[in-house]
Amino acid sequence: MNVNYTENTPGSSTNDTDTSSLFEIEILIPVTIICIVLFVLGVTGNLITILIFKRYKDMRSTVNMYLSSMAISDILIFLGLPSDLYRIWKYKPYIFGDFICKFLIYLSEMCTYSTILHITTVSVERYLAVCYPLKAKILITKKRVKIIIGILWIIALVTSGPVLFLYGVEHPLGTLPAETMECRHLESSTQSGLLLIVTWVSTTYFIVPTFFLTLLYGLIFRKLWRNPHGIQDTISRNRGKHHKQTVKMLALVVLSFVLCWLPFHIGRLLFAWTGLGEFIHYHLTQYFNLVSMVLFYLSASINPMLYNVMSQKYRAAMSKILNPRQDSQLRNTIRSEQASLEGTETTSFK
């Protein structure tokens, strides 16, 4: 993630040659500890999610395939954490080189886009499964989901490409490179309008899916909680219960992602609009970016926590991985779910 600590401040990247941190030590230490904790929780939790999907065949529903792919994206995001921590402690000179600067920013952008696409697609699947169950059984297959996931990653890879040309390592004119090299947006690319293009792409990725998902989950909730015909048989009642649980969990995933990514997106918009940054207080801007960074990494670590809270099946599988003695309990849970759902493919963690 590129937190852009200096670029939102007029003149800071051209006149300031101080290589000290922009923040007090009283702020840096707690933020660093929080980020390290998020790193441990995020990497561990997402690895467990992937292991659950790989190890237990009965957990390989189509929804869980999307969630596992999202877990890979979240793990990749944490590759940029060491660089971001370095930059909040000593934002210049940047010592990791131009390639690392470009690659890490591109990686975070690409993974963010990928997550948005996955959340939107799996939500569409839930809508079909709830509102059109017969069509969903025909349309939603594991083979097709694998193809769709591959396409989503390709779209994210391509659409985040302009970021590679927007950021890099450079130093202000008239300064010593060894002292003032920064990983930041390039002046030439900004003047060419590339920053505006990237901002609009990012805005489209955020606003359009958010609006669409709000509408989609509204329709799903209305279908599940306001069914005028009611549920008659036990099998249908169990399926309705599982649908509700899955939709609740996915809705929380969507909400947490939107709330965590919103500050970062607002910060990018503020800087992209020429001249607006001049009206924002220097220190307020920097602390806003710092909060955005923490929330960004929180969004990459929170999903396994939500699965654990919302899903009994996920908790059982995680307990089995952490404690092999729980194997019999997990198998009983899976058998119970299979019996109630009669082999339905479109259910998720319960």
Rank of each mutant, 00 (worst) to 15 (best):
M1Q: 04
N4M: 14
T6V: 13
E7S: 14
T14Y: 11
T17M: 11
T17Y: 06
T19W: 05
S20V: 08
E26R: 11
E26H: 12
I29T: 10
T44L: 15
I48V: 15
I50G: 07
I52Q: 12
R55D: 11
D58P: 01
R60Y: 06
S61N: 15
S61F: 14
M65Y: 13
G80R: 05
S83C: 09
L85P: 02
K90R: 15
E109T: 13
L117G: 04
V122F: 03
R126P: 01
V130P: 04
V130Q: 04
A156R: 00
A156T: 01
L157M: 11
L166N: 02
V169L: 00
V169G: 00
L173P: 05
G174L: 05
W200K: 06
T204I: 08
F211P: 00
F212H: 02
F212A: 03
T214D: 00
L215N: 05
Y217M: 10
L219I: 03
L219Q: 05
N227S: 08
R237W: 08
H243Q: 15
K248Q: 10
E278R: 07
E278Y: 12
Y282E: 14
N289C: 15
V294I: 15
L298G: 11
L298H: 12
S299N: 06
S301Y: 01
Q312R: 14
M318F: 09
K320V: 08
I321T: 05
S328W: 12
R331A: 08
T333S: 12
S336Q: 14
Q338E: 15
T346P: 01
